[in-house]
């Protein structure tokens, strides 16, 4: 955020209407804009481009209590080569797992370019003492995670303890060190309003987030298009004012190729083509890949596809 001149105590709020300001969000207009972008008709070459881009930006995810090395190993293969029958299909950006499974993934993905992301900091609730969250992150980094997906403390946020939320992001970012990228999950479904989504986005970015991410995937309301648009607009304001590029990850509830394309349209028309890269954009998903592969093959062959021809990993 822009450095405001030093003000007397109690006057820390930005008093100028410059960006990025906290401001507020009109829910109806935001939802209408998102709905109108969702109606973009993406055909032929443009569709193939979007579907391949979607694959390249996917954080292939499994976050179950039942996750095992075997399950994660299979998922790693899928991430590297989503469609074994079609070598032109690119790899996913990363896989996303619990810290215990980072070593397995690390080993499987060595040299493939697919990165390892770990959820940490008391995922998914964030309801743990700060030192434990920091230690959780540090251990995930030590186990070899390239990227950390942390959660903010929604309890602190909703009770107005913004400083605590900010402080935790700062400390987790420190724990990530030089190597690991930090994604901050807001769990927007628990924040209640778009005003809060915007506020939390700016708070996370101020705390040092490399990416802001919508959701854990653990509650029903997740990466809706209006929520994504709201966060993208905050990211845009930060860039406009400071030149700092913050990434965005939509995660939770994105299961169909069509949704993925809609999310990409949102980014394209809000932040521009510069953000259409795995360095600044990710889609968190567990079951999206096969639907994209089916759509891609349909585009190539002209025939509608059956799931029986795409491997479940």
């Amino acid at each position: 955020m822009a450095q405001a001149p030093v003000l007397p105590p109690g006057f820390e709020l930005p008093l100028e209407p410059r960006l990025p300001r906290i401001g507020s969000i009109d829910a109806v207009a935001l939802e209408e804009r998102a709905a109108s972008l969702a109606k973009r008709s993406i055909k032929r070459d443009a569709k193939v481009f979007a579907l391949e881009l979607a694959i390249r930006t996917i954080d292939l995810t499994t976050l179950e209590g039942a996750d095992t090395p075997g399950k994660v190993a299979a998922m790693c293969s899928k991430a590297v080569r989503p469609d074994p029958t079609d070598p032109s299909i690119p790899s996913c950006a990363a896989i996303c797992v619990y810290p215990n499974l980072v070593p397995t993934a690390r080993e499987r993905l060595q040299g493939t370019g697919v990165r390892v992301a770990a959820v940490a900091s008391g995922f998914p609730s964030g309801q743990y003492p700060t030192p434990i969250k920091v230690a959780d992150v540090r251990s995930a980094v030590e186990l070899g995670a390239d990227e950390i997906d942390m959660v903010i403390d929604r309890g602190a946020f909703l009770s107005g303890r913004y400083a605590k939320v900010y402080d935790e992001v700062v400390r987790v970012k420190e724990s990530c060190g030089e190597s690991a990228h930090l994604k901050v999950i807001l769990e927007t479904g628990e924040l209640g309003t778009y005003d809060n989504v915007r506020r939390a986005t700016l708070l996370a970015i101020a705390g040092g987030a490399d990416f802001v991410k919508t959701s854990t995937g653990k509650i029903p309301s997740a990466a809706t298009l209006p929520v994504a648009l709201c966060m993208l607009e905050a990211v845009r304001d930060v860039y406009a004012e400071t030149g700092r590029r913050v990434g965005f990850k939509a995660a939770g509830g994105i299961r169909q190729a069509k949704q993925a394309v809609q999310h990409l349209v949102l980014v394209h028309e809000t932040l521009g083509p510069e953000w259409l890269t795995p360095e600044l954009y990710r889609l968190g998903a567990s079951s999206l890949v096969n639907d994209i592969l089916m759509q891609l093959r349909k585009e190539k062959t002209g025939a509608y596809q059956s799931p029986d021809y795409f491997t479940l990993d």
Partner: peptide, 8 residues
């Protein structure tokens, strides 16, 4: 990045 032109 940037090559995404919407087809007619």
């Amino acid at each position: 990045p940037g090559d995404w032109t919407y087809a007619p």
